[in-house]
Protein backbone atom coordinates (compact mmCIF):
# COMPACT_ATOMS: atom_id res chain seq x y z
CA UNK A 1 0.00 0.00 0.00
CA UNK A 2 1.26 3.45 -0.83
CA UNK A 3 0.79 6.48 1.42
CA UNK A 4 -1.18 9.16 -0.44
CA UNK A 5 0.79 11.84 1.37
CA UNK A 6 4.47 10.84 1.44
CA UNK A 7 4.49 7.96 -1.01
CA UNK A 8 5.84 5.48 1.53
CA UNK A 9 5.15 1.90 0.45
CA UNK A 10 4.65 -1.08 2.75
CA UNK A 11 2.22 -3.94 3.27
CA UNK A 12 -1.18 -2.75 4.61
CA UNK A 13 -0.56 -4.34 8.05
CA UNK A 14 2.40 -1.97 8.52
CA UNK A 15 0.00 0.97 8.40
CA UNK A 16 -1.28 1.03 11.98
CA UNK A 17 -5.01 0.36 12.10
CA UNK A 18 -6.78 3.13 14.02
CA UNK A 19 -10.53 2.69 13.67
CA UNK A 20 -13.27 2.38 11.13
CA UNK A 21 -15.01 5.23 9.43
CA UNK A 22 -18.20 3.23 9.82
CA UNK A 23 -18.65 -0.42 10.62
CA UNK A 24 -20.74 -1.02 7.49
CA UNK A 25 -18.26 0.65 5.16
CA UNK A 26 -14.98 -0.67 3.79
CA UNK A 27 -13.30 2.61 4.72
CA UNK A 28 -11.02 2.71 7.70
CA UNK A 29 -8.42 5.02 9.14
CA UNK A 30 -4.81 3.92 9.31
CA UNK A 31 -1.61 5.74 10.17
CA UNK A 32 1.37 5.93 7.83
CA UNK A 33 4.46 4.58 9.63
CA UNK A 34 6.63 7.10 7.81
CA UNK A 35 4.87 10.49 7.87
CA UNK A 36 2.42 9.53 10.68
CA UNK A 37 -0.52 11.06 8.83
CA UNK A 38 -3.99 9.60 9.34
CA UNK A 39 -5.16 8.10 6.05
CA UNK A 40 -8.53 6.96 4.75
CA UNK A 41 -8.00 3.43 3.44
CA UNK A 42 -10.24 1.37 1.17
CA UNK A 43 -9.96 -2.04 2.83
CA UNK A 44 -11.37 -3.89 -0.18
CA UNK A 45 -8.84 -2.46 -2.60
CA UNK A 46 -6.14 -2.17 0.10
CA UNK A 47 -5.55 1.37 -1.09
CA UNK A 48 -4.74 4.56 0.81
CA UNK A 49 -7.12 7.18 -0.54
CA UNK A 50 -6.30 10.45 1.17
CA UNK A 51 -5.20 12.13 4.36
CA UNK A 52 -7.99 12.73 6.89
CA UNK A 53 -7.60 16.03 8.73
CA UNK A 54 -9.54 17.28 11.72
CA UNK A 55 -13.06 18.18 10.75
CA UNK A 56 -13.07 15.86 7.77
CA UNK A 57 -15.23 12.77 7.56
CA UNK A 58 -14.26 10.09 5.10
CA UNK A 59 -17.72 8.56 5.37
CA UNK A 60 -19.50 11.80 4.44
CA UNK A 61 -22.29 12.94 6.71
CA UNK A 62 -23.88 10.77 9.35
CA UNK A 63 -26.52 8.34 8.20
CA UNK A 64 -30.11 9.42 8.52
CA UNK A 65 -32.83 11.62 7.16
CA UNK A 66 -30.81 14.71 6.63
CA UNK A 67 -29.62 13.03 3.45
CA UNK A 68 -26.97 15.63 3.00
CA UNK A 69 -24.57 12.99 1.74
CA UNK A 70 -24.98 9.43 0.65
CA UNK A 71 -25.08 6.69 3.23
CA UNK A 72 -21.69 5.06 3.30
CA UNK A 73 -22.31 1.47 2.46
CA UNK A 74 -19.75 -0.70 0.68
CA UNK A 75 -18.29 1.15 -2.23
CA UNK A 76 -19.43 4.57 -1.03
CA UNK A 77 -17.59 7.36 -2.71
CA UNK A 78 -15.17 9.47 -0.78
CA UNK A 79 -16.28 13.11 -0.73
CA UNK A 80 -13.78 15.70 -1.83
Amino acid sequence: MKCSECGHEASPEKFRYLYNARIDSSLSMRQCPNCMEVLAVDELKREALKKVGLGEAPWGKSAGIENLAEDAGPGAKLPG
Binding site: Y19, W59, S62, A63, G64, I65, E66
Partner: peptide, 17 residues
Protein backbone atom coordinates in the same frame (compact mmCIF):
# COMPACT_ATOMS: atom_id res chain seq x y z
CA UNK B 1 -10.91 12.60 18.28
CA UNK B 2 -11.99 8.99 18.25
CA UNK B 3 -14.90 9.74 20.59
CA UNK B 4 -15.78 12.82 18.55
CA UNK B 5 -15.85 10.75 15.38
CA UNK B 6 -17.92 8.11 17.12
CA UNK B 7 -20.55 10.70 18.07
CA UNK B 8 -20.63 12.10 14.55
CA UNK B 9 -21.03 8.58 13.15
CA UNK B 10 -24.27 8.06 15.10
CA UNK B 11 -27.32 8.04 12.85
CA UNK B 12 -29.30 11.28 12.74
CA UNK B 13 -32.89 10.16 13.11
CA UNK B 14 -35.74 11.93 11.41
CA UNK B 15 -38.83 11.58 13.55
CA UNK B 16 -42.38 11.43 12.40
CA UNK B 17 -41.37 11.45 8.77
Amino acid sequence: RKTQDNIIQRTVQGIGS
